[in-house]
Design a protein around this nucleic acid. Structure first.
Lengths: 346, 346
DNA sequence: GCCTAGGATGTAACCGTTTTCAAGTCTCGT
DNA sequence: ACGAGACTTGAAAACGGTTACATCCTAGGC
């Protein structure tokens, strides 16, 4: 006859409870709310945990508590310095408050983004960090149906009903274009990033255009080129602009990679920057100030932006009231790549 | 009097089952093993799922099936092009086979890495992707105790008992140094990445040194500098080398970022590359071929490396036999930044 | 026509936590 | 000395799936 004894088959929290001579409830409390259990028991439990090498099973915990202390993020690509830095910053912040991050990429494909969102919700994330406000229709419904808090990062849209945090790209681009206009340029070209499914890129283009329009400047179609995020494509675009019969004396670029490409191609074609051509970038990447000539550009505090996004969600989840639309300041960094246009072409 | 009826409080799979008029077991099968359920039922179930907007709850699934179809990865930092690309590639592969990736960073801190591993195991990952073989003692024990499959990425160590996939950094660095030696250089400096907790960096240094030693070349201590992964630090190192009374005619660098810094500083100091100084990089980043002069460097197929790491784990988990140590080929890309040393200094 | 093998489906016991609720123990003020 | 709270603690029911096992059908083989 068997006496109902402690079977050795126990696992997880029950094994710890058995070894410490307490109930599973107490172990759970010792882990999640240490103050609720007496010091002596707490010590016994801690010791049992160490002895057993116990690691709590997060899925079980999530299942039973309906909270995962995990956020999901969907970015177009991780292979872009700005996003990589942003994610790093977000992750750093989240881990400092005991949260984890589930990262996925969409490749600028709205369908994929929607699918990834389903994935993440399925995974039990408490909230979602999204890039921009350009989403699949079904995504909003999905988020609403499942009551998943989220925030749009990298844009500033105070008039929309969705939370967001980021710089005002339109205003920043306007500032960049105004800079070369103030230097005296009248013939200004644009090399932007691809605008499709990318509200950040299109906001920048809008800002550039508004600045030109405000000064009554023309933008012939052939002076506006859109390129993917590679040096090769940027160089090709620059070659196109520089080979035009009527070529611009300044080029404003959708990001620093493009600007670098323009710089390279200008040099190769024998144009001096800023003597013959002024170039403005956007983002202020690490190497931009090291270029020859160093790059005039717009600095965007990416790290802060993404951290704020994390803060917003964490606070919302904690029930705190937080501001829905947060603007992150940009600044124009004037360096060597911009100057007044050549006298002959003023 | 109430008849025991379908309560509206049902959730998840039970709600789907009720609506489709089947048992939860059947719904589960329809989801995980569609062939096991008749076409008619499958259709009813699919319809119920759509109607309800049902999203399976992954934690519950993991809890009961003891498999998460999720891998964890711990990299030193995401803010380094090579890692960012690697992760992107790994993630892409994993999603193509229905797996997800949990990504965390350690900041080259072994304690943090260990903690992250605990985190990931707690999360229920089926396997772990680690950078290199330089880990905390406790990590191996942790992995063994919990029977978690793992692989060391970015190094090649056929003699160690742990699975790994990557290029032979020692050999690649040896090749790089041999290249400048073959060009006639006898005075060769090294600017390496920080070697602490970084077996990739130290393998490269070892390779450089072996090549020098094999040709009886001296490496005075002041000709070997270690720097963090930034242009500023690389430039400072270059300044140091170029200001020496006896300065090297060639510099081999631990990565392309360092090489770029050396290029920039050489230009600023009025040294011509490769006329006065030859420079070799390592990694072949996207922009390396665009530099002036374009950079001689070692190409490392990062994408393939990380994808292979994913393949190894996925296959192992599927019970397939796979090779433990896989070497990924590197290649020397000779461009403009290397040439024979100035005649006077041969 | 009967027996059996095998496929389709349902029943219900888990998976490892958290959490509600009840019970037990202290601490005090009166 | 006693009862009201305030704390600790434990028992057991969720949480939302999977899966071993039982059951029911159906189609063949004899």
């Amino acid at each position: 006859m068997l006496i109902a004894n402690e079977k050795s088959g126990k696992q997880g929290i029950r094994a710890v409870a058995a070894r410490a001579g307490v109930s599973t409830a107490t172990v759970s409390r010792a882990l999640n709310n240490p103050d609720a259990v007496s010091a002596s028991l707490r010590a016994r439990i801690t010791q049992a945990i160490d002895a057993l090498g116990y690691i709590p099973h997060a899925p079980a915990r999530i299942l039973s508590s309906r909270r995962s202390r995990t956020l999901g993020a969907i970015v177009p690509t991780i292979d872009n310095t700005m996003f990589a830095r942003g994610i790093a910053s977000l992750q750093h912040y989240l881990s400092s408050v005991g949260y984890m991050l589930f990262l996925t990429t969409s490749g600028y494909d709205l369908e994929v983004e929607l699918q990834q969102a389903r994935n993440l919700i399925s995974r039990g994330v408490d909230g979602l960090v999204l890039r921009g406000d350009c989403h699949h229709e079904g995504l909003r419904k999905l988020l609403a149906d499942n009551a998943v808090p989220f925030i749009n990062v990298g844009i500033y849209q105070p008039n929309r009903p969705y939370p967001c945090v980021g710089t005002n790209n339109e205003a920043a681009a306007h500032r960049a274009a105004s800079h070369v206009i103030e230097l005296g340029h009248r013939r200004i070209g644009i090399v932007s990033a691809l605008q499709r499914n990318n509200d950040r890129a299109s906001a920048r283009v809008a800002g550039f255009r508004r600045a030109l329009a405000e000064h009554g400047l023309d933008l012939p179609p052939q002076w506006h080129v859109e390129v993917p995020y590679t040096l090769d494509d940027a160089r090709e675009a620059a070659r196109h602009l520089l080979n035009l019969r009527e070529r611009p004396t300044a080029v404003v670029c959708g990001n620093d990679v493009i600007a670098y490409g323009v710089l390279l191609e200008a040099e190769r074609s024998g144009f001096s920057v800023p003597g013959d051509l002024s170039v403005v970038g956007f983002d202020d990447l690490d190497w931009s100030r090291h270029l020859r000539p160093s790059l005039t550009t717009i600095r965007v505090p990416t790290d802060e932006t993404w951290q704020r996004a994390g803060e917003y969600l964490v606070r919302s989840l904690a029930g705190e009231q937080t501001i829905m639309h947060r603007e992150i300041d940009f600044s124009l960094i004037v360096r060597e790549s911009t100057a007044p246009p050549p006298a002959a072409l003023k």
